[in-house]
Amino acid sequence: MQQRLGNITWNGMTFGPGTQYAVTALSGIDDLPDVRAEDMDRPAQHGAYTGPDVTGARVVQLQLGLRGLSPDDLRSLSLALRAATQPQAAPAELCLLDWDILLRAKVRKRSIPYDAERLWSIGDAAIEFYCADPYLYGLTERSASTTAYSPSAGRTYPLTYPRSYGVAGLSGRITASNLGAAPAYPVLRIDGPVASPSIEQTGGGTLQIDAVLQVGEFLLIDTSTRAVLYMGSTPRRSWVRAGSVWPLLMPGTTELTYRGDALAGAPGQQSLLTVTWRDTSL
């Protein structure tokens, strides 16, 4: 990791070295967003009862130096920047390439002043990004898959020589590595055929799904929003059994175990769990 910022990308534009948009200042990346504390004063006592601290939204300020080749070129740079920083319906990706950081952001403020006292080919701009999701994600999306756990077939009786011990069991385990400093919320995809699939986090509880998925059917689970989508679009939140625990990938390594019951009508076909995540920090 290096201190040099390097390039920033946003909405098809690139800012920084080698471009006509020099990054002159950046704030809000290494800063901790405002903390929402759940503290309560102790009645008739000194001190307070303290609860978990959670952060609010992250605000990122980006200042640019526009370096045109002529007054008309400077105007073109201003118009291109204006077009790329329009109000948005949904967050988009703001990427700091050399710092390996991805944020999901909206443009909330933009300033591109005109200064007649300066050289006409040089200008300034300031952009404020609002990140309702305050997490800093790694640029690389990580993924791992496993088939459902199944025990070994054991010995075949009556015994013959050479002896047959059946097929080996399948572990159904995934070891996920989160190189960030905050818990990562994985996206889980379960592909059938399987009945009553479950995902167990070592030392962290189990997410149990009361459903049957046939061959070609799948369930997409976003542990951040807790959306459960059949075939990626139809809500099926009711399929999550009461008391289930949603998996979190803590900093370091986390082991997940996938279990499920085979379907009688799908011999030889195995269900698949795919876990997708990014390194996550605050």
Results as ranks from 00 to 15, higher is better:
M1F: 12
M13W: 09
P17D: 09
T19E: 01
T19C: 00
T19H: 04
L26V: 11
L26Q: 01
S27V: 09
G28S: 13
G28W: 10
I29N: 13
L32M: 14
P33I: 06
R36T: 14
E38G: 00
D39R: 06
D41G: 07
R42Y: 04
P43S: 06
Y49L: 14
T50Y: 03
P52W: 15
R58Q: 05
L62S: 04
G65D: 08
L66K: 09
L74I: 00
A80M: 15
R82K: 09
A89P: 02
P91Q: 14
E93N: 07
L94R: 04
C95D: 12
L96K: 01
L97P: 02
W99H: 06
I101P: 06
I101F: 09
L102E: 00
L103N: 11
A105N: 00
R108F: 01
R108N: 10
R110L: 13
Y114F: 15
A116T: 12
E117P: 00
E117G: 10
R118L: 13
L119K: 14
I122Y: 15
G123M: 02
Y130N: 10
A132I: 04
Y137Q: 03
G138T: 05
L139V: 03
R142W: 13
S145P: 01
T147C: 01
A148S: 13
P151M: 10
T156E: 15
R163I: 11
S164P: 07
Y165R: 09
L170Y: 08
A176G: 06
V187T: 13
L188V: 01
G192S: 03
V194E: 06
S196L: 15
T202G: 08
I209E: 06
A211F: 05
V215S: 15
L219K: 02
L220E: 11
I221N: 00
T225E: 10
V228F: 03
M231W: 11
S233N: 05
S233H: 14
T234M: 13
P235E: 04
P235D: 03
S238I: 08
V240Q: 06
G252K: 00
G252N: 04
E255T: 12
L256S: 07
L256I: 01
L256M: 08
D261R: 15
G268K: 06
L272A: 04
T280Q: 01
S281V: 03
L282V: 02
